[in-house]
Design a protein around this nucleic acid. Sequence first.
DNA 1: TTCAAAATGCTAACTAATATCAGGAAGCAT
DNA 2: ATGCTTCCTGATATTAGTTAGCATTTTGAA
Lengths: 157, 157
Amino acid sequence: MVFQEERITEIGKKLHQAGMKLTPQRRATVSTLLEYQAKHLSAEELFTLIKQEEPEIGLATVYRTLDLLTELRIADRVTFEDGVARYDLRCENQQHFHHHLLCSVCGKVEEIHEDLLVEVEQEVLHKYGFKVQDHRLTFHGVCSSCSENTKQSEHGD
Amino acid sequence: MVFQEERITEIGKKLHQAGMKLTPQRRATVSTLLEYQAKHLSAEELFTLIKQEEPEIGLATVYRTLDLLTELRIADRVTFEDGVARYDLRCENQQHFHHHLLCSVCGKVEEIHEDLLVEVEQEVLHKYGFKVQDHRLTFHGVCSSCSENTKQSEHGD
DNA sequence: TTCAAAATGCTAACTAATATCAGGAAGCAT
DNA sequence: ATGCTTCCTGATATTAGTTAGCATTTTGAA
């Protein structure tokens, strides 16, 4: 929890650098993002959670804050196939957005924090002249535990 | 155009295998997808275009057909940051969805049809036990022509 | 031709996200 | 303190993309 406070103060500084304030509403939003880090929560889901800490907050403010954090690259917005925007705090000193593994059997979303695309992005620059600043990479497939289960039930047959 | 007919007939077979019919509406949808291949059109954009061929078609039918084609893996749905679903016909015999380059300066969307992720997917299988079936990869950055322009205006200063 | 299943068109409903706008708080010079 | 400006907020209306419901039509097999 101490780390949280440090992290929030640090984010507050970034806001001030951009000429903005760390209001109680924004503090509560960041704090909730920290608490549910890497859970890929939607704005509405976050809204419900943030209300527990800051009951007076309005939905629009949550949207505005998330936009703000995304612009300042403090948070990342990602949209999966359902078309709903989800938000994660960007890990400290992380250059790129992390990757996701989406299991088509159980629906679970895993994360990969190592950057698998360093070489691929070199290739993209050389072949297509495209300067990559960021990426979105999601794999669709079957997670380890679901493949285990499939194997077992095959043995059962 | 002959190729188109062949392709449509082939898709018709796939539908029949799944116990479904190639109705005039579905034919027109597929035909329009073929015509505007890899243009990442939204359902509403497609609806407008399809109407030229099949004026009586309803928007809901277009949505239903696109869902159907996506389920049968004849088409691919992709959602960029605006949250709007866009559709491309999957190229024949193409195992994986193609990649996208999204220019943050001019907003252009380029495509990469070669599969850059073969090795990465091997890695994902070995390290995380995740069996990749498909992927979504979008790079955000600056396209070649926009970097050219930037260079030139820097010289101009 | 008859009949059931599948597919369609229309429209209402739903949902995520944005815009609007009147008020409120913070910062700063006076 | 006082006024002034700028930024921020909450409530609400609005928009846009998508889905659901339902009566009607089409299709293909018996």
